[in-house]
């Protein structure tokens, strides 16, 4: 059952640790395409190149980056699915 969404509680989580660019962005885009507009996806990516590239690719595709938080080389990106 989907969680009731308010503020930025993720509807789904996608673990992309260890997945290189640009396959990580590709998988994130495919996941977002399967979700409904307005839902929130939590994406786990490595810091560095993935942290720089993945949010940018998702923005270019019309999705909204809500938050990026990094610690110990790992990042959590919250994305709202675009219309």
């Amino acid at each position: 059952m989907k969680k009731a969404r308010k503020s930025s509680t993720p509807d789904e989580t996608l673990d992309l640790y260890g997945v290189p660019c640009p396959m990580n962005a590709a998988r994130a885009l495919l996941t977002l395409q399967a979700m409904d507009a307005g839902q929130i996806l939590e994406i786990l990516v490595d810091d560095g190149e993935p942290r720089a590239n993945v949010p940018e690719s998702l923005r270019e595709d019309g999705h909204e980056i809500l938050d990026i938080a990094c610690a110990d080389g790992r990042c959590r990106v919250l994305v709202r699915v675009g219309a």
């Binding site: 640009p22 190149e49 690719s57």
Partner: peptide, 20 residues
């Protein structure tokens, strides 16, 4: 599909879709 610009991401997306 190894390039990190938008054209590469589009190709990578085609590949990941097929892989899935």
């Amino acid at each position: 599909a190894s390039s990190i610009h938008a054209w590469g991401v589009r190709a990578a997306t085609e590949i990941e879709r097929a892989r899935q």
